[in-house]
Design a protein around this nucleic acid. Structure first.
Lengths: 245, 245
DNA sequence: CGACATCTTGACTACAGTCAATACTAGTGG
DNA sequence: CCACTAGTATTGACTGTAGTCAAGATGTCG
């Protein structure tokens, strides 16, 4: 597992996730402390960042790229537990090992902090803890929304829900414009979608074909989806309101 | 919805959840502030504490009893998202409405704080925020464990997992004794179990009957379960390690 | 005892899983 | 440039698990 340590010396002030990551509430002096501690790591698409149970000596923010959080049963069944996008946080303070598998699905850059110094900083710097609390609560809401999808929705509803969630994330939520067509690039293979939704990849494929056949979505290539009318897609999700991640 | 405001004036020092709840890290002076703010509320078994979308003017700790966190699709399908046991926290600071249905399944006593003063206190008192962060992270881990159960396990594995989790909670985790028989009282009806596991109540009933037929569990009445050999039950869960809630 | 909740069991159905063949796409090397 | 391969996606035929509908059993409380 080759790990590239790339020290760009990106200034926090210029950081693309400065205003959303765990550091977003920090004052200039606090940011300076973090700046001293931080180091970058990059992972290639497909690389595993950590296996469940691995020692994790750092915590980190995703700067670029997409990673997944997942868990595996001994017979190989896997369930994806979350998508990690830029500004999302990896690791848990005061816990030595990773509870989940973390995999880079695109090339990923992490802004890392060794765990112990970060924990000390967390105690000394309430702004970090406050932001981490907010982010953790958002994750919890997202996880609970997924529980409803996993436990109670049909295959078709699951696919529609996933697409809806991705639409809401890609298109910044500021403009809730009526029914202009929306194009999304799926960052996921059919198999990754199936791991996310608790389905098989064949079922995912069939449901996507069905939605296409009915004109609810259009495909441009395999990974690019056009939604001509979001309302029609929403009607397939089984619930009117889908929120975040 | 009759709400009883019972002002026992229980001293925090004597509180049964003093050392596990959101206040557990507080110093005496901090505790005194909380003591000034708090008020008790009780709900009868079966009562709804809040519906999803309701205005929630308070946050609270569960002192006595068991409540559930759930979500409902418009056609009536419901998914339980968590069990709230004594010391668990209800509500989310800085959010005005409840994101979920909260129902008392036994008589419940809550230690409540009006939201706004609690938010102010949270900023002034890092000890509270630290504890709330810990608790939220635990909830997140529990929710993610459930995602795996909901998404990837068979009906039989789901039932075995639920029983295992309840065993681990009832029996304090201190004694990991080998294979002494364990008795548990289910706080849940078959329907509640089905809502938890994303199954129908008929399937729950059938699987429990099957486990009984095979001698993996014994029933004393409908709600009391004896597990003669935990290892055999664990072997039915599909995963070797089940952690918490 | 009767009324109502809850639970169990059976017969049948349907949705999604499994296994397998085929198609599409992109990348590699002759 | 084309042939070959490997990874990804689609589709079909069949199976099996859990859902649905319904009857009856058990249990609890007035």
């Amino acid at each position: 597992m080759a790990i590239n340590i790339s020290k760009f010396d990106v200034q926090c002030a210029d950081c693309p996730i400065r205003h959303r990551a765990v550091c977003s509430k920090c004052e200039v002096d606090e940011l300076a402390s973090l700046e001293d501690m931080k180091f970058y790591r990059t992972f290639e698409a497909g690389q595993t960042i950590a296996w469940a149970g691995d020692n994790l000596t750092f915590v980190a923010s995703v700067v670029h790229g997409v990673a997944t959080l997942g868990q595996t049963l001994e017979d190989g069944r896997t369930q994806m537990l979350g998508l990690l996008l830029p500004s999302d946080f990896i690791g848990r303070p005061w816990r030595k090992t990773s509870a989940y598998d973390v995999c880079a699905i695109t090339d990923v850059t992490l802004c890392c902090f060794r765990r112990k110094p970060f924990e000390d900083m967390l105690i000394r710097t309430p702004h970090i803890g406050e932001r981490l609390l907010e982010m953790t609560m958002d994750e919890l809401d997202a996880a609970r929304e997924w529980m409803l999808i996993l436990g109670r929705k049909t295959a078709r509803e699951k696919i529609a829900s996933l697409l809806t969630i991705i639409v809401h994330r890609e298109q910044a939520p500021d403009v809730p414009r009526a029914n202009a067509p929306v194009t999304i690039d799926l960052p996921l293979t059919r198999e990754a979608m199936s791991d996310y939704l608790g389905l098989t990849l064949e079922t995912v494929s069939r449901q996507i074909s069905a939605l296409k056949r009915e004109g609810i979505i259009l495909l441009e290539g395999k990974r690019r989806v056009v939604v001509p009318d979001i309302a029609r897609l929403l009607a397939q999700t089984g619930s009117d309101a889908i929120s975040h991640l």
